[in-house]
Write a protein that binds this DNA or RNA. Structure first.
Length: 429
RNA sequence: GCCCAGGUAGUGUAGGGGCCUAUCAUGUCGGCCUGUCACGCCGACGACUCGGAUUCGAAUUCCGACCUGGGCGCCA
């Protein structure tokens, strides 16, 4: 029975391991093989005069990144990595790797992101890349756990839809038998419909698709959205929830991912809640005093403004009370001040992570909001009908999972947080 | 969509009219090496994205195509 490499300690007497040949150092009569699995690396030491002939032969034939099965005696030796090494009586090549490799897994020579993504299966063998996806898995696990613990229902909504959610963004058209259809940009309308169904608390973690031809380090054409909707809740209630999730995610990763964090060289600091809730008007004042370009009330936050605010705030924060004009039709305007609405963005100092709002739950108000955005209410009929038969007040948000992972780990490019990113130019692998 | 910068061995790079039979590292192959841990030493192998133009001469300049990275807008 093979052991995970990290579980082999100086006290282990005998071990069998499966792994990939990370590095080979042949000193002549003595050779060292570093064998790697997803949990760690162990040194296998072969003394040619003492080792079985079959071991020596296999060791001579093996190439870097081949899959091997090695079994033998474990010796506690201080000068070996991890304080132990394996002296094999069996060294079996399970799958010989061809040469040369498309990229250097041991990271002696860097590879560009494009090269790495082309050979993602190899790139992901690199401990620092594996680590990112172990953390990502943990992040999504923590979110699931927290939401289940708070009584949320995990839903799945269609990704093939007939119309845009909110207009504005470009959609990917697809052929759906004799009809035109699109890949969904957001589960927004569906999760709201489940409020009319009385589900009260729902969440969905799934893909969203945007056909924008953006070319940045923080946009993807296929992203993972963490979406939440809660009945009988206002925007502050769901900001509280979002805050709990972010803090819990950081804490969960810090507690359960020590090896990945070590690989990434990150000393993860759990952010302190509550996060400041900065009204849009104040945010504009702060940003405009710190940047060159003109920024007026009613403008969207540009990248420079976001960056300036991020420097000022230094931590996660919310921007609240946005002008109704620049938020989607489903954001609830304040009753006493309809020029601003109960929408919010959750910001990391580097970028926006999430946006949400208390939603409009009154049918007639929603129709007038849709029309004031220049959209046609008829095309939203499937969405509007539930609002006529008992729609509770509700609020929710959507958060980019990749952005959460990216900002937490300080990744330079959002593509680092996706196994097989889809961007303007990349459709394979 | 707009703007900028690039494409040189498997990988990452140097070189910006003749000094290029193209640098260095890593890798691969062969040889030596019993404690390496970026092992070391000797030798070899391997590349100028494509098409056109300018020129006596182009990896280098110009035009076009293709591909890539980044900034902005917009957003998660």
């Amino acid at each position: 029975m093979a052991l995970p490499i990290s579980s082999v300690t100086p006290e282990t007497e005998y071990a069998e391991i499966h792994g990939w040949v990370h590095e080979i150092r042949d000193l002549g009569g003595l050779s060292f093989f570093l064998i790697r699995d997803r949990t760690g690396i162990i040194q296998v030491t072969i003394v040619k005069k003492k080792a079985p002939e079959a071991v020596v032969e296999a060791a001579k034939a093996v190439s870097r990144e081949s899959v091997v099965r090695v079994a033998g005696t474990v010796k506690g030796i201080e000068k070996a990595p991890g304080g132990r090494e394996l002296v094999p009586d069996t060294f079996e090549i399970i799958a010989l790797a061809a040469v040369p490799l498309p990229l250097d897994v041991s990271e002696k020579v860097p590879a560009e992101l494009d090269t790495r993504l082309d050979g993602r299966y190899l790139d992901a063998r690199r401990p620092r890349v594996t680590a990112v996806f172990q953390v990502r898995s943990c992040v999504l696990g923590v979110i699931h756990e927290l939401l289940y613990a708070e009584g949320f229902i995990n839903i799945q909504t269609p990704k093939v839809v007939a119309a845009a959610t909110e207009g504005g963004t470009e959609l990917f058209p697809i052929a759906y038998f004799e009809k035109e259809a699109f890949l969904n940009q957001s589960p927004q309308l569906y999760k709201q419909m489940m409020m009319a169904a009385g589900f009260e608390k729902v969440f969905e973690i799934g893909p969203i698709f945007r056909a924008e031809e953006h070319n940045t380090t923080r946009h993807l054409n296929e992203a993972t959205s963490v979406d939440v909707e809660v009945s009988f809740a206002d925007h502050h209630d769901v900001m509280d929830l979002l805050e709990r999730i972010v803090v819990d995610v950081y804490r969960g990763v810090a507690e359960t991912c020590p090896y990945p964090l070590e690989q990434l060289g990150i000393d993860l600091q759990v952010p302190g809640a509550p996060f400041p809730r900065l009204p849009y008007a104040e945010a504009i004042d702060i940003a405009s005093s710190r940047i060159e370009e003109d920024l007026a009330y009613g403008d969207d936050m540009g990248t420079a403004a976001e960056r300036a605010l991020g420097e000022e705030m230094g931590e996660h924060y919310f921007i609240t009370d946005w002008p109704t004009e620049i938020k989607p039709y489903y954001a609830m305007p304040y009753e006493d001040e309809p020029g601003i609405c109960k929408a919010f963005d959750l910001m990391h100092p580097r970028m926006e992570l999430s946006s949400g709002a208390q939603r409009v739950h009154d049918h007639d108000l929603l129709v007038s909001r849709i029309e004031s955005k220049g959209l046609s209410a008829e095309s939203f009929e499937f969405y509007l009908e539930p609002f006529r038969y008992g729609m509770p007040p509700h609020a929710g948000w959507g958060m980019g999972a990749e952005r959460l992972v990216m900002t937490m780990l300080g990744l330079p490019n959002i593509r680092e947080a996706v196994l097989f990113p889809r961007d303007r130019h990349r459709l394979t692998p």
